[in-house]
Every structure is written in C-alpha cells, then in structure tokens.
C-alpha cells in the first residue's frame, strides 16, 4: 500500500562507475595544468615581509627568481651566516647575475623579452647592503623590471 513497501525486495541497482575514470581524469588534467613544479630547492632562509600594495606576477615563464637570505642550518657551517644570494639551485655572487639573466632570456620568445621581471625573494631580516649590490647589478644589466616579493598583509 505504501510507497515504501513497493521497493522492498527489488535489488538496489548498482550505480554505474564507468564514468568515474573520466571525472578523475578531468580533475587530473586540471591539476596538471595549474601545477608549477618547484625547480630549485631553497638553500637560504627566505621569509618575505608583509606589504599591502601588491601586484600579481603574470606569466611565470617571464619571471626569474633571485633568492636572498641567510643560509639554512644545513649550509651554515660551509657558508657562514651572512646573507647570500641564490640563483637557480646554487649559491652565487653578484657577478653571476648577468649570465643568469642571459640564460633565462634566451629561453623567452623575442617579442616578450621586454616584459621579463626579476622577482627578488628577500628575507625580511637581511640588511640592505647585499640587496643594494644586487639592485645595482640588475640596473647595470639593464634588467629594470623588479618585483619585491611580499606576502599580503593580514590584519
């Protein structure tokens, strides 16, 4: 009589899982596209300061990263505690910057080269001396678009 009793006895039909792989693949492709694999492991401690006037860095391929900070515990004995520059995955000096920029430049299409940005990921506790040297070197290498990496301010 009741609607519910009718159903009793009937085997519950199994939900078709045939489309499950497709759904998973869709998700997979999404994550594959948005993923940027870290290409360099940090050898310096970088804790960027907070700021409010931030601009987003577009097009990752047009950005080169310069890390400045004090060597992490692992490298302290070898490299000391004074601030160091890291280019790619190794320690570098200011003199290595022009070559580093050039190496990045040749990978970028010619019509986009004017939009190359250098992202300075600098630890908040580093003194300005090394930052200034690097800025001067960037100016000498005619790499004038610079982005001081910072975290959004949480109030």
């Amino acid at each position: 009589m009741s609607k519910f009793s009718k159903k009793r006895g009937k085997a519950t039909p199994a939900i078709s899982t045939a489309s499950l792989p497709d759904i998973i693949f869709m998700l997979l492709f999404f994550f594959m596209v948005v993923t940027v694999l870290r290409d360099s492991s940090l050898m310096v401690k970088v804790n960027t300061p907070q700021a409010s006037e931030l601009t987003k860095l577009e097009e990752k391929s047009l950005v080169n990263y310069l890390y400045i900070g004090r060597p992490t515990d692992q490298y302290k004995e070898q490299y000391g505690t004074s601030p160091r520059l890291q280019l790619g995955d190794k320690f570098a000096t200011v003199d290595d910057i022009p070559l580093f920029l050039e190496k990045h430049k040749i990978k970028v299409a010619e019509n986009k080269r004017a939009r190359i940005t250098s992202s300075l990921k600098v630890d908040g506790d580093v003194t300005m001396g090394i930052v200034q040297d690097i800025k001067t070197q960037l100016r000498k290498s005619n790499q004038l678009k610079v982005n001081y990496s910072a975290k959004p301010k949480s109030e």
């Binding site: 960027t48 700021a51 006037e53 931030l54 601009t55 987003k56 860095l57 990752k60 950005v63 940005t117 992202s119 300075l120 800025k135 001067t136 960037l138 100016r139 000498k140 005619n142 004038l144 678009k145 610079v146 982005n147 001081y148 990496s149 910072a150 975290k151 959004p152």
Partner: peptide
C-alpha cells in the same frame, strides 16, 4: 606570487 613591482632607473 605577489609583490611590489618597481621600475629601477637605468644605470
């Protein structure tokens, strides 16, 4: 990646 974008003066 966010940060303060700066245009440095030419050397």
């Amino acid at each position: 990646d966010k940060g303060i974008t700066v245009k440095l003066p030419p050397w």
